[in-house]
């Protein structure tokens, strides 16, 4: 891979990290209400996977989707404004943190019923085949979703109908506060792909290049051979399930241990070791990203509230 692409991946991960840190800060200040599920720790998954697709491919995700939206290129200010519930938000302030949607970039949204969007991805794959196109769909969800019925129904349909969908489980080891091992029979979940006669693979979600490479192979299979794939990407969220979760169900030691796998820190070390980027350049990038995130907050703060009549708009065509 050329250095430019490597640097871009790093830049995107850092943007997501700093965006999420700022979102947390705004949440604590009371500027953002409701739910706010941070992507901190999982950045390599969205960035690596989305680096492996084309601009006209589809991405659909769960409610922990700020990172995916940033990775497809949605403007940070439009996302921040949505978190604030402002009129300039990407979903006109009607969706909030969990429902970022960017039609122009084929980002089909953040969905907040665990597993509920997995059948939608299947249908998008169906539409692609029906119209004779060669796009693919990346469908992101958490480990909790693998226990829902629709996950299994969808994999069955995708295999049966040969749909170009890559189902990506971001296994962060906790479904809300319950450990995967306490919730799932057969926690080696990538093996479940066998039941549906499709490729299943384990991926290190803290290694952006491994994500990129393995998703890339799945994308090739989907695009050219119409073979769906199920990937179990092992990652970790450094924060709680949502902003209101102090994560008392796991030890500090465990979190500290996982922080050693921090995908941004380790990738930076690699880029420095390989002489791809200097410490000075990293400093510059930090500054540039800080400016983007600060501007996003300023934009959100200055944006108008949605007017009352918007309440009744967009229910029907």
């Amino acid at each position: 891979m050329d250095s430019e692409k490597l640097i871009e991946m790093y830049r995107q991960m850092l943007l997501i990290r700093r965006f999420e840190e700022k979102a947390a800060e705004m949440y604590m200040m009371g500027k953002i209400g409701g739910f706010c599920h941070l992507y901190i720790g999982q950045e390599a998954v969205a960035v690596g996977a989305i680096a492996a697709i084309r601009k006209d491919d589809y991405v659909i995700a769960s409610y922990r989707e700020h990172g995916h939206a940033l990775a497809v290129g949605t403007e940070p200010r439009r996302i921040m404004a949505e978190l604030f519930g402002k009129a300039t938000g990407i979903s006109r302030g009607k969706g909030g943190s969990m429902h970022i949607f960017d039609a122009e970039r084929n980002f089909l949204g953040g969905h907040a019923i665990v597993g509920g969007h997995i059948p939608l991805a299947t249908g998008v794959g169906f539409a692609i085949n029906y119209e004779g196109k060669d796009q693919v769909v990346l469908c992101f969800f958490g480990d909790g979703a693998v226990n829902t019925g629709v996950f299994h129904e969808s994999l069955n349909l995708a295999s049966l109908w040969k749909l170009p969908v890559i189902y990506i489980c971001e296994n962060n080891f906790y479904g809300m506060g319950t450990a995967v091992t306490r919730a799932m029979a057969g926690p080696e979940m990538y093996l479940k792909a066998k039941a549906y006669d499709i490729p299943g693979e384990l991926v290190d979600g803290m290694n952006v290049l491994e994500v990129w490479e393995k998703v890339g192979k799945a994308v090739e299979r989907a695009r050219h051979e119409k073979i769906p794939t199920f990937l179990e990407v092992r990652t970790y969220r450094f924060r709680g399930h949502s902003m209101s979760d102090p994560a008392l169900y796991r030890t500090k030691e465990e979190v500290n241990e996982q922080r050693k796998r921090d995908p941004i820190v380790t990738f930076k070390q690699k880029l420095i070791a390989e002489g791809i980027l200097s410490e000075e350049k990293f400093e510059e990038m930090e500054k540039e990203i800080k400016a983007i995130v600060d501007e996003a907050v300023e934009f959100a703060e200055k944006s108008p509230e949605p007017p009352e009549e918007w309440l009744y708009e967009d229910v029907y065509a």
Partner: peptide, 25 residues
């Protein structure tokens, strides 16, 4: 292709219809 028999999997295929509808069908 246009008249598609589905398995007895209502959540799967009703949801697939929603997804297909959002992308042009």
């Amino acid at each position: 292709e246009r008249v598609r028999d589905c398995p007895i999997s209502e959540a799967g295929f009703v949801g697939a219809a929603v997804g297909a509808a959002t992308t042009g069908l």
